[in-house]
Design a protein around this nucleic acid. Structure first.
Lengths: 318, 318
DNA sequence: AAGCCCTGATAGTTGTATGTTATCACTGGC
DNA sequence: GCCAGTGATAACATACAACTATCAGGGCTT
């Protein structure tokens, strides 16, 4: 009849539960820190909103009606859910107890994260990452659409909506089969690569373009027909003598402890590197924390992986 | 800082969830039936109450922040609980879908309820009784204190706070061992009882007082030393020849289909009955329903038990 | 039987929370 | 370079939840 429209407030539920527990309006009012008329009014409002009588009042006291009895539990559930909500919120409000969706390329994640996540977890126990792998372009796109909160990826496009912090430079090593004529040098003259078959990944990986550009410059052939779908595949193809390849330093550091059947070297006077950055939307409310996090990551990487990569020093970048 | 005091409203949670689903303030506002500025204001209020940023706004759209992501589920839980509350309330509001706490004496409940509850359930499927047994005095007291919503008991005290409706008269039958000298008559001259040992229940049962008063009048001895604690005990004591007894008609109707070893009769020209009533607090919001219920009960009892009891006819009592 | 203390209900008022409309400032696509 | 779309802001209206002061009745004590 006169209901419809407004929905009872949380306060009204609080009042209901308290009166139901105390069975006395004045005491309940005192417990709630409000005046007794407020309670009377609000309980009345709740009652005729619901079209039910929750309490049997008399001059000698208050009783919970059968309807009130039935509803009490549900009202308590609402308040409990509300309490949960606020507990979680309070927990989040220090910024470090949140789960962030982290995007990282498959050519990097498996070879970097195992080395640094344990230390990060030790430093910030409440911090959680939901890690998803995708190619750098997709990462960047996903960052803009909100699919990721944070991406750790080779530097790619710049965009006014994205802030990034450089983390480290990772060398790209040159690998060739052990039985290759050049497989006896630690540093190879770039000139000697001319004409080699260079294997690489599918072109949606940033990696590919970099390798392609190098090959163009040195006059090597990029073997598009044999594009691998993972670094492991790529390695197998080199071992089988199908060509040579550039492989990321962290991959080699992680996977090739005893590189039998494979020779790893570098191009003399021509260090090839990719730079990885940590990036986030500049609208992200966690941006301050992300900047701090990038410093933490640099420290950890410097400590754990300085034999494989070079940590970026300056940190006042955009 | 500026929080503390007011707690976010349910509406704010509703707004949060809707914006999180639509990721667009104007669309969410339209879905909610409010204006877009209202949403902006309320979401802002919620955010700085929580001390968190829930959304990343930009001129080109809205994204859910990591914190928002984490909280969304809990906000939905609150709204769901609130919905449950209102569903239950709506269900209750027709009055018949409630569980009422029904008190009944142990000398009546087991022999009456099995005969009438199935029919009541068939007529009012949503109606539930939480049945507790206690002696009539305790029932009456419990009704006043709110322990029961409804009692079905022999007529006892009257009280301005209690309304009652008579249901039926139940005869008290006279039982004696089969080998008793009087065990060959259907109607016994009350004079013949003088000097008999009459067994009865503990004195907190209304039953006891009635039997005691009859025995006083007829000059029989009430065997207080052998007060039984249940009608079954009482019956066993009679069978064992420890005395005679008055037993409620419904007990005999329910339990003694072939009364071997026990003779059942009545006192000639001296029908002894107890009247049972349905009673409730006159402050009970269900009083109209209870009155209707008493009529329903009378109908059912008339139909099912008219060979054992006499249903009260008038129904315009207080 | 009278009086007192306790109960919840009511009247009248006020400040604030929550909503409105009108408008701005900026982004991104065509 | 314009236009359609985004969320933010300002100024104002209203509803409502709070207060204080008071009332009316029940039941226990004297």
């Amino acid at each position: 009849m006169l209901s419809e429209g407004k929905t009872p407030s949380l306060n009204q539920l609080r009042y209901f539960v308290t009166v139901a527990r105390q069975l006395n309006f004045r005491r309940a009012a005192h417990a709630l820190g409000v005046s007794q008329p407020t309670l009377t009014t609000q309980i009345n409002a709740l009652e005729n909103h619901l079209g039910l009588t929750l309490f049997e009042r008399s001059r000698s006291g208050t009783l919970l009606s059968a309807h009130g009895h039935a509803l009490l539990h549900y009202a308590e559930q609402v308040l409990k859910a509300n309490l949960h909500f606020h507990e979680v919120a309070r927990n989040l409000s220090d910024g470090e107890n949140t789960m962030y969706r982290l995007g990282i390329p498959p050519t990097l994640g498996p070879y970097l994260l195992p080395h640094i996540l344990p230390d990060i977890h030790a430093l910030k126990p409440g911090l959680k990452f939901y890690v998803r792998e995708a190619a750098p372009d997709q990462l960047f796109q996903g960052l803009l659409t909100g699919e990721y909160d944070l991406i750790l990826s080779p530097m790619s496009q710049t965009n006014s909506q994205v802030q990034s912090q450089p983390l480290f430079y990772e060398p790209l090593k040159f690998v060739l089969p052990s039985d290759h004529p050049l497989a006896d040098q630690d540093y190879i003259d770039p000139e000697q690569i001319r004409g080699e078959q260079v294997l690489t990944l599918e072109d949606r990986h940033h990696f590919h373009h970099q390798v392609q550009e190098i090959c163009m410059r040195l006059g090597a052939n990029v073997a598009r027909d044999y594009e691998g779908t993972s670094l492991d595949t790529l390695r197998q193809m080199v071992v089988m003598g199908m060509g040579v390849a550039f492989l990321p330093g962290l991959y080699i550091h992680s996977e090739l402890h005893k590189p039998e059947a494979l020779h790893v070297c570098e191009l003399a006077d021509m260090p090839i590197v990719r730079q990885h950055v940590l990036a986030w939307r500049n609208t992200s409310p966690a941006r301050a924390f992300f900047r701090e996090l990038s410093a933490v990551m640099r420290d950890i990487i410097r400590q754990r992986l300085s034999d494989a990569v070079t940590v970026t020093e300056s940190s006042s970048n955009v």
